[in-house]
Amino acid sequence: MTEIPKEEMLLKCPSTCAGCGSLLALRYILKAAGKDTILVIPACCNSVIQGVYPYMLHTVPVYNIAFAAAAACASGMSEALRAKGEKTNVIVYAGDGGTADIGIQALSGALERGEDFLYICYDNEAYGNTGMQRSGATPLGAITTTTPNGKTVNKKDLDRIVEAHNLPYQATACSSYPADIYNKVKKALSIPGPKFIHILAPCPPGWRIPSEKTVEIGKMAVKSGIWVLWEKEYDKFTVSAPSRAAMKRPAPVGDYLKAQGRFRKVDEKTAAVIQANVDKNLKRIALEAAQSEETE
């Protein structure tokens, strides 16, 4: 097992909500990245939790940038650093709105150009920073302030959009599995070119769960198969250990839905659709993993 450094890269304490999944993930991202790193952060929860001028809590440089702009900013930064012969890690830490919605054009452009940086999307499945409005990443049935009766359409499959760019490295993760995050970030940063990690980050106020349940709910997401941990290095697709175990006998997704207030208006019919979506997706992933193993 990898030794995760004890040193914290964030000083006490960012002003995230109590029990924030995205902050938990960021702790391990920065441990893996180390000091030779610049964080690029578009408008999102993480742009407002850094502390108040003239102080901040990050011990690596942080460049805050406009909502739609993270991947383009990282492109310019990375190109400039590489032109100067510097290897400094450039890491975008962006929410799902800044990634799947307003920032997707810049992201797609940067991935297509093959820019050398790591893009991490922490997905709390809504516009958390502005009080939980729906995003393209909000799942079917979830209540947000702009879907008061629950979202009527599916979550955008961001990973398959990103996958279409044929990156050297792509992975999913969840804040409830910090060692997995640490390893994936380490791996990603060892590979030149564009890298993408999509982290499910439960949000207590947005998901209407008690703050102590953040880790538990993330694990339920993985165990039910509604969120699958995997990584893809060039063409090698691997399901990560926690999901490998879960896929043998996935927990019913209904338990995951019932544990969260945001799904309280999901009726049986919608619950069945969600379960069917999960089943279909798990089949697809199992098939992809099997095919990848065959070609090994």
Partner: peptide, 12 residues
């Protein structure tokens, strides 16, 4: 421009 400093977001 901000510099690293503990308690930058207050005593949480």
């Amino acid at each position: 421009i901000s510099v690293p400093h503990e308690a930058a977001a207050g005593l949480t």
